[in-house]
Design a protein around this nucleic acid. Structure first.
Lengths: 224, 224
DNA sequence: TGATCGCATTCTGTCGACAATCGACAGAAT
DNA sequence: ATTCTGTCGATTGTCGACAGAATGCGATCA
């Protein structure tokens, strides 16, 4: 890399907007911020020790990414995603992952980056939260393999919203670690055989089945 | 300085951010704003007669919607979407429209709203630009029929970006009005028969063929 | 006692100004 | 002549403050 000789790191002071975005986002996804209560920019700004302007821009970005919405009296609050929103979110996520699978199969992308995610998924002594994170990381890695930046961006937004729904209804139903490793390894193998054979359909079927058992996806998919 | 050169209007009400977003967006999509030149918030603010803050927030929103990009700590500029970006954009658009088609077929949504779009497409004496708009409106109407707000939002962003690409390379290859009416009527009929039979596959195939002939979509789709 | 109007407080939207940073240019040193 | 360095103008990032709107409370009247 560029700075390998000196060990210097590239200095990039992220803008306050990016920093505020990041902090508010993790605050929401960790459940630290109360679900229904309004998000007041002045309060957030004071808590972060910055002015309101960057916070306001960050809130707008969070709104576009779906984690935050403006209520009628025009104050921001965390999106109250309910079980009613699950079908749409799950459908869109499945659609995006299928796009990724197809692209990967068509371009015969190397699958090595998935091994790291699989390993993290199977490492012993991980909390349920870490297991869920590793699960999400595997799917995100698959999507990333497609090399489509816009797909990546919108997929990240989707997973954030889904995580918010799960947080609200706390119906975290991640199975045991071992069975998860088994299932995701099967997914990778399906991808590999699809690449070898050139036919993505079996991999797509495996993906549908996988996401179907993860959460109730509408029966949109069987006709395929 | 009046806004005669750019066609911007002085903003009066609503939210200045929304208004600025709207005006800059149409300015980009109409080609009024130079493609490569930087978008300076001070200049835009002055042209619209408002301060820089709303403009900056609008530019950030435009960045997330893909029409504008910013180099680190430097000025915004219109995204230089090239022909290299067409495969991803077209793939994502097709994926989204297929999601809509599947949802419509499964829920047996009434197709009446499409007739208005078809009529506009076939009304005589329309310019090539209006024909293109009516074409896009038909597809947007189909997506809207699915009733999925997030799908709608991201589809709108996609079509904006695609329009920007077409604007840059001006390879507008809209056929004659009559043949377009014919093709889109066929799409609606395919949708209808799919709803009646309960099998979305023929409609999906019709959609793939339609979008394939519209612009070079990668061969992602034939395995379906 | 209950409802409605008015006032005060709080919050959001917007603005002008200051500070920080970047690219370019010119001058100096090799 | 070329390269490095110091400075300057331009532009972005951030801030504190003001104005309008909304909310809540209290007083007054039916």
């Amino acid at each position: 890399m560029t700075s390998s000789t000196t060990g210097f790191q590239v200095i990039r002071s992220a803008s306050l907007v990016d920093e505020a975005f990041r902090q508010i986002r993790v605050g929401i996804l960790n459940g630290d911020l109360a679900a229904g209560s309004p998000l007041r920019d002045s309060v957030l700004a004071e808590q972060m020790g910055i002015s309101r302007s960057p916070v306001r821009e960050a809130l707008r970005l969070l709104e576009q990414s779906g984690l935050v919405e403006k209520s009628a009296n025009r104050s921001y609050r965390i999106s109250d995603l309910a079980a009613a929103d699950i079908p749409e979110l799950a459908t869109l996520r499945l659609a995006d992952e299928i796009v990724a699978v197809r692209t990967i199969v068509q371009h015969k992308v190397a699958l090595d980056p998935l091994d790291a995610a699989l390993e993290r998924l199977g490492s012993p002594g991980t909390t349920a939260l870490e297991i869920a994170a590793a699960d999400a990381a595997f799917h995100a890695a698959v999507v990333a393999l497609a090399g489509m930046p816009r797909l990546n961006a919108r997929y990240a937004d989707l997973t954030d919203q889904i995580r918010l729904v799960l947080l609200a209804g706390d119906l975290e139903q991640t199975g045991s670690s071992s069975v998860l490793v088994e299932r995701h390894t099967a997914l990778r193998d399906a991808l590999r055989t699809a690449i070898d054979s050139g036919d993505p359909l079996p991999a797509i079927r495996a993906w549908e089945a996988h996401l179907l058992q993860g959460m109730q996806v509408p029966d949109l998919l069987d006709p395929l």
